[in-house]
């Protein structure tokens, strides 16, 4: 399966997260790594033993997403991937963070503990208030 464009990737990733909404189990796995396949990297020389440490030009980043279905449920497996060019990285990750934030709905929301504390204070006046 070829790589999707960044926009298509976000659409499919949102769908992937939406499928998990309302489910009580499951996972979504996102992977990112430098795209090293078919990339021009100079041969190691005595001066630069590890040429990948300082490549002459910035390299694209590969982003993968799956719904973590194993071999037994291969037909249900969803695999998405896209390649982000270096100059598109900041914009991509801004949107990526948005999609992830709205998709990961079962994580603990921020305000819950504070609300609980306030409710307790209101109910039980005998409990001394915190600092």
């Amino acid at each position: 399966m070829g790589h999707l464009s960044n926009d298509e990737f976000f659409v499919k990733l949102t769908e992937l997260f939406d499928k998990k909404k309302g489910k009580d189990h499951g996972s979504i796995v996102l992977v990112q790594k430098r795209l090293s396949h078919d990339q021009p990297v100079p041969e190691p020389t005595s001066d630069a033993v590890l040429p990948d440490l300082h490549p002459p030009q910035p390299m694209p980043v590969l982003i993968r997403a799956t719904n973590a279905k194993g071999k037994k449920r291969r037909e249900d497996k969803v695999k998405l991937s896209t390649v982000v060019e270096p100059d598109a990285l900041p914009a991509f990750f801004d949107r990526y963070a948005e999609v992830c934030k709205s998709g990961m709905a079962t994580l603990k929301p921020r305000d819950r503990s504070k609300r609980k504390g306030k409710a307790k204070k209101k109910k039980g006046a005998a409990i001394p208030a915190g600092p």
Partner: peptide, 8 residues
């Protein structure tokens, strides 16, 4: 590589 796993 960096893996981000969201698990329910």
């Amino acid at each position: 590589r960096i893996t981000t796993k969201y698990h329910i």
